[in-house]
C-alpha cells in the first residue's frame, strides 16, 4: 500500500470513528453496508463527512461498495 493509500484509509477511519461511531480496524476489503453495519442514515453522514474531510466531491458513489472502493474514489477525486 502506498503512503497515500494508507493516509486516505487512516482519514476514513478517523471520520468513521468521529461521525458514525465505528470502532475497530478499517480494512480495504470490508464492505460498507454488510461489514461496517451502517444503516442508511449513517451512510449519508459518512459520505458527507468523508467529502468534507478530504475536500472532494465523490462521483459514481452509489457504486462504491467496499472501503477500498472508497479509498480509490477519494484518491481519484483528489488527483482530478
Amino acid at each position: 500500500m502506498s503512503a497515500s493509500e494508507a493516509e486516505v484509509l487512516a482519514g476514513i477511519a478517523a471520520v468513521a470513528r468521529a461521525h458514525v461511531g465505528f470502532q475497530g480496524e478499517l480494512r480495504p476489503e470490508l464492505r460498507l453496508v454488510e461489514d461496517l453495519e451502517l444503516d442508511s442514515l449513517k451512510m449519508l453522514s459518512l459520505a458527507l463527512e468523508v467529502e468534507n474531510h478530504f475536500r472532494v466531491c465523490l462521483d459514481q458513489e452509489a457504486a462504491i461498495e467496499t472501503v477500498g472502493d472508497l479509498v480509490a474514489a477519494i484518491r481519484e477525486a483528489r488527483d482530478a
Binding site: A47, A62, L70
Partner: peptide, 11 residues
C-alpha cells in the same frame, strides 16, 4: 435520488 454509498442494487 440514489442513496449515497452502496446499496445501488436495492435502489
Amino acid at each position: 435520488p440514489p442513496v449515497r454509498l452502496g446499496r445501488l442494487a436495492e435502489y
